[in-house]
Nucleic acid binder design. Structure first.
Lengths: 414, 414
DNA sequence: GCCTTTTATTTCGAGGCTCGAAAAAAATAG
DNA sequence: CTATTTTTTTCGAGCCTCGAAATAAAAGGC
C-alpha cells in the first residue's frame, strides 16, 4: 500500500526542492535562469526565491558579472548562504578517522585526520574520538556561520539499511556499532551512516552527472572489495543491510579462503591480500593477511609489469575474478558504467586484460553494450565529498524545502 | 536532470490514484471505508468519488450488505465499473499462445490457447495469430462492456527496458521482435511487453501483498530459468533489457554448455535440459536438448526419489547451482523471500537440500536471515493474472487518475 | 539629459486542490 | 412521529501555481 496522500504543501515542497537542487548543481543562478532550468513559471520562482531569501537560505548578490554589461534590468544572482548551516563529515577507514566540517555552500571549514588502531578499538572509543574531533572543529569555527545541522558518516564495512548501525567491518573486531544514534545523542542532529562505496558513488554522480546519472557501480579495490550501486539515479541498498557486497559474491564454489570466513568469494582472489597470497605462492586456503603495505603492493605490481611470473599470474587471477563478478552483476542488472576506485585502480593495466576476457560474450542481449570502465586512484577525497553531498542534499530536500520558519504543525515527519 | 515540477493537478492525480488502488485491492468499499483506508478527508473522498462515478469509472450500489442492517444512513458501496474498459492479455510460451480478455473489474471475459510451433515462426506470423485471436474475442463480446484500452503481453524471453521489443527468446529463432508497436498499430492502445517472470512476480505480489510486498524474487524453473525481481515494491528492470537474468549468472567458470551459447551458467546445471543431460550421463558440453517432455522429466524425478544414482545426483547438481546463484543474488541485494514457480517447484524436494547446503553461511550480516522459499507448481494462471493486473493498474494509475503522474511520487530524480 | 527599448522581477486575480465544520440525507429506535 | 446515529455532501478558508499586466532597472539613441 505504498501511497502517500498529497496536499497542497507537497507541491510547494517539491518545487522548492527543485529550486534548491538546481542551485546546488550550478552554484549561482538568477531567478530567470531558475525559471528556464526548473520549468516553473516566473511568478512561482519569484515567490519561492523570496521565501528562501527571507529565511536566510539563499543570498542575493546584486553585482553580477562585471564584464557582461547587457541591456535591460540586470539579473540578481542567488547563491546558497554558506552561513545558514554546517554539516559534519566522518570517514572511518582502516586505522584512520577523518572528520571535516562543511558549510551549506559546500565550502570546507575544517578537516582533520587521526591515526589510530581500529581493529582493537571499541565502538565507544571510536565515537568518543569522532565526537572530540568534531567538537574541536565546531569550537574553532564557532564565530562564523550557522549551526551544525546534519552529519554523514561512512565506514569501510556493512551498515544496516536504516543508516544507523555498522553491522560488520573488516577493520574492527566489534560488531553492531550504533554510530548513528551515538552521534545523534552527542550532537542532536540527524546522522546517516553508510558504506564508503555508496559515498564514493554519490561523489562520482555529483562530479559527472552526465556519465553517472542513471545506473552505475563504483567498485573500491582496496583493503577489501566493496561496491556502491546506483540504479535509476537512486542509491541502492538492500532491505536489511547496505548490501551490494560485490566482493563476496562466489567466484569459485568452495574455492579460496576469504577474510569473511567463507570460501570462493571474489575478494579471496582479487583483494590485496589475495593477490599477495597468490604472488607469494601460498596456498589459497592460507589465512588472509590482515593488511598489505602499500609499498609492498606497489613492488608486486612492478615485478608483474616487468616479466611474466607468479606476480603477473596473481594479478591475472584477480582480473578473472572481477571479470566473472561483473559478468554476474551484469546478468542481473544489465551492463552499467563501472568506476574502479582506490589502489586497485593503479594496477588496472595488470588486471584489465583478464577482466575483458572473462566478460567477453556477455555483451547484453542487444549486443550493443560494451565495457565502460573508468579509474580513480584516490578514494579518500571522493568519499569525503560524497558524505558532504549526502548531508547537503538532505538539508536541501528535507529541511529547507519544508518551510520550518512557518508556525505550522510539524507532526507529519515520517 | 529530470526535475518533475508539481502542480495542483498532480495532487488530484495522486489522490485519485490512491482511491482507485484501494478499491482495486478490496473490490468494493464505501466512501467512509475509503477515508479511513486512504487517510484523505471525507470531503476529498466525496469529491473524488463523485467525479469517478460521473465519469463511469466507478459504480454505486445502494443495497449494501443485507444482513448488516445497522442504524444510521447506510453506506453506498463503490465498485470498479467492469464495463468502462477491457484489457487484453497475451502470453507467449514454448509452442503456445494464450490470449484473454479481462474487464475493468478483473473479470475474465474470454480466454483461449492456441498451440503452434514457436521456434520456426516469424514475428509477423505470431503477431498475426495474436491479433486474430484477440479480434475474435473482441467481436464475440462486442455487445457488452467498454472498449479495449490496454494490452499486456508476456514472453518467455528477454525484453527491452521500454517494454516494446522482445530481444531474444529461447523459444523463437527470430530476434528483436517488436511485439509492442505491432500490437499498438493493430489495436491502437498502449501495449506493454514484459518477461513472463516479471508477470509472475506481479501476480504473487497481488495475491499475497503481506509476504511479497517489498523485496522478493520469483524464479521460474521450467524450460529455462528466469527471474522476476521486485525491489522496494517496484518491479526491477535493467537500463536496456528486462535483465534479472538469474539463469545466466556464471556458476562454474568455463563450465557446462548453456543454451545461450555461453558456458557455466546456472541454467546449464539447473535447467530441465541440464538435469536430463546429467541424468543421462552425457558430458556437460553436449548440445542442450531443445525441449524435455514433461513425462520424461517426471520419470527422472521418480527415479531420483526412489534410489541414489545419476538421476538423484543430477538434481543435486541443479540444487547446488541454484543455491550458489541465490548466494550471489543475496550478496548483492540481501536475502529476500523467494518463490519457485513452474515444473521445478514440483521437484523442490529433490533440490532443496543442496540449495540449503550451498547457501548456509550466507545468512546476512545480522545473522537473523533465514531462507524463505515457497513453491507454486502452476505458472500459467499466475502469468495471466500478472498481465491482467499490470494492465488494470496502469489504467488506474495513468488513465483514470487523469493523465500521467509527474511529481510528488516518492521517487525524486536529479 | 530625457525618452525609448530591453530584460528581470513582482504583483494580482483566476482556478485547482484539500481540509474542517456544518448541513443534509437516510436509515433505525423508541 | 420524533430522536438518534451514521454517512455523505456542501461551503468557506487556505495553499498552491500560473498567465497577464505592472513595475524596476539597466543601456541606447538623439
Amino acid at each position: 500500500m505504498a501511497g502517500a496522500i498529497a496536499r497542497s504543501d507537497d507541491v510547494r515542497r517539491q518545487n522548492r526542492k527543485l529550486v534548491l537542487t538546481a542551485l546546488r548543481r550550478r552554484g549561482a543562478l538568477s531567478r530567470t535562469d531558475l525559471t528556464t532550468m526548473t520549468g516553473l513559471s516566473a511568478s512561482t520562482v519569484s515567490a519561492i526565491a523570496a521565501a528562501l531569501v527571507s529565511e536566510g537560505v539563499l543570498l542575493e548578490s546584486r553585482d553580477g558579472d562585471v564584464g557582461a554589461a547587457r541591456r535591460g534590468r540586470p539579473q540578481v544572482t542567488l547563491t546558497p548562504n554558506p552561513d545558514i548551516a554546517k554539516v559534519g563529515v566522518v570517514n572511518l577507514s582502516l586505522n584512520s578517522i577523518t572528520v571535516a566540517l562543511v558549510d551549506y555552500a559546500g565550502g570546507i571549514i575544517a578537516e582533520q585526520t587521526t591515526e589510530l588502531q581500529t581493529w582493537p578499538a571499541t565502538g565507544g572509543e571510536l565515537v568518543a574520538e569522532i565526537g572530540a574531533m568534531l567538537r574541536r572543529q565546531l569550537q574553532s569555527s564557532a564565530g562564523s556561520g550557522g549551526k551544525l545541522m546534519d552529519i554523514s558518516m561512512s565506514v569501510q564495512g556493512v551498515t544496516d539499511a536504516a543508516g544507523e548501525k555498522m553491522l560488520w567491518a573488516p577493520i574492527i573486531r566489534e560488531r553492531n556499532i550504533a554510530f548513528g544514534p551515538a552521534l545523534t545523542d552527542a550532537f542532536d542532529v540527524p546522522v546517516s551512516l553508510a558504506n564508503d562505496c555508496t559515498m564514493l558513488a554519490e561523489a562520482l554522480r555529483w562530479t559527472d552527472p552526465g556519465h553517472y546519472g542513471g545506473d552505475f557501480a563504483a567498485i573500491l579495490l582496496s583493503y577489501g572489495i566493496g561496491m556502491g550501486l546506483y540504479l535509476k539515479g537512486q542509491p541502492f541498498s538492500g532491505s536489511h543491510s547496505s548490501a551490494a557486497e560485490f566482493g563476496h559474491m562466489a567466484h569459485i564454489p568452495y574455492g579460496a579462503l576469504c577474510r569473511c570466513g567463507r570460501r570462493g568469494c571474489i575478494e579471496a582472489y582479487a583483494g590485496d591480500y589475495a593477490i599477495w597470497r597468490n604472488a607469494m605462492g601460498m596456498p589459497d586456503t592460507a589465512a588472509p593477511a590482515f593488511s598489505i603495505d602499500a609499498t609492498v603492493f606497489a613492488e608486486l605490481a612492478e615485478r608483474a609489469r616487468e616479466a611474466a611470473g607468479v606476480e603477473r599470474e596473481a594479478f591475472h587471477t584477480a582480473g578473472r575474478a572481477i571479470g566473472f563478478g561483473l559478468n554476474n552483476l551484469f546478468s542481473l542488472i544489465d551492463p552499467v558504467p563501472i568506476a574502479f576506485v582506490g589502489p586497485g585502480a593503479k594496477v588496472f593495466d595488470l588486471i584489465e586484460p583478464e577482466i575483458r576476457n572473462a566478460i567477453s560474450g556477455t555483451a547484453g542481449w542487444d549486443g550493443a553494450q560494451e565495457l565502460n570502465i573508468r579509474c580513480y586512484p584516490e578514494e579518500h577525497p571522493l568519499i569525503l565529498q560524497g558524505c558532504a553531498m549526502t548531508s547537503l542534499l538532505r538539508l536541501d530536500a528535507e529541511v529547507f524545502s519544508g518551510g520550518e520558519t512557518r508556525g505550522l504543525s510539524q507532526t507529519s515527519a515520517a
